[in-house]
Design a protein around this nucleic acid. Sequence first.
DNA 1: ATGTCTTATTGTATAAGA
Length: 277
Amino acid sequence: MVLTVASWNVNSIRRRLAGFEAVAREAQPDIICLQETKVVDELFPAVEIAALGYPHQAISGIKAYNGVAIVSKFPLSDIETMSWCGKADGRHIFARATLNEATELEVHSLYVPAGGDKPDPLKNPKFAHKLAFLTELTHWWAARGSVQRPGGGPPRLLAGDFNVAPLPSDVWSHERLKNIITHTEIEITHLESLRRAGDWLDAVRHFLSEDEQLFTWWSYRAKDWEDADRGRRLDHIWVSPDMSPALKSASALKVARDWDLPSDHVPVLVEIDEKLI
DNA sequence: ATGTCTTATTGTATAAGA
C-alpha cells in the first residue's frame, strides 16, 4: 500500500474549498497538512472536509491570519498544538496517524513566519521573529531527539510552508533573490540547523538532482506566472531518516496554480510505501 | 515603488499581511 501525504498552504481554507475538493480528487492524498487556514476552529469547514473523505482532523486556527491543520483518512491521536516565541498564533500542530495495526506516523503541519520585506533582524521585527522561531524549533527538536532516540519512537514527517527556499535551484534566480527574504543566507543557515537538529531528510529534494527546479509558490502579482516562472520552493516535506527506504516519489501539483481562485502555493506531495515504514 | 489576493473593519474604501 502506498501512503500519499500532501502539504498545502491554502491561503484561506474557506476560500479554497473548491480547490480542496479538486486536490482530493486529482491527487487523492491520505493525509493533508494545511497552512494559512485563516479561520478560528469554530468556523473551520470540518463537515465539508469530512464529506470529501477526511473525517480525522487536527486544527489550530486564529482569526484572519496563519492557522494550521492536519486532515486525514486515517485516525489521528495525541494531537498537540505548539506555541513558539510566546505566541499562540496557529503555526504548528502535530498528531499521531495510525496507518494500520502495526504502523504509526507522527505528522507535523508547520507554518514558519514569512518575515516581512527587509532582511535585517535589527530593523525588521518580523524577520527577527522568523529567525527566533526557527531557533526555538531547532532547540526543541535537538532536545526531543535525544530523548526519543533510545526508545526509537514512530517515524516522523514534518511538512509545511517553511517560507525558506534553501538551495540556489529552489528559486528562479539565485542572484536576484539572495538578498530577498526566503532566500537569504541567514535563513538558509537557520533552516539547515533545524534540519540537522531533527535529523531530517528533505523528501522532495531526495528525488531531484541538486540543480533541478521544483517550485511550490508563484506570486499572485505576476499575471504571466507560468511563462515568467519566477517561482520558489517554499513548501517542504521532511521525514525521519528511517523513512528513506520507504520514499517512492515526490511532486508538486502545479496545475492547481491555474485553477479558478488559486492559492499562490500549490500542494507538494510525497508517496511512501507503507510496508517499508 | 510596483504588482494581487485575503481578511477585517469606526465598512461599499482602506489597511495589514503575505
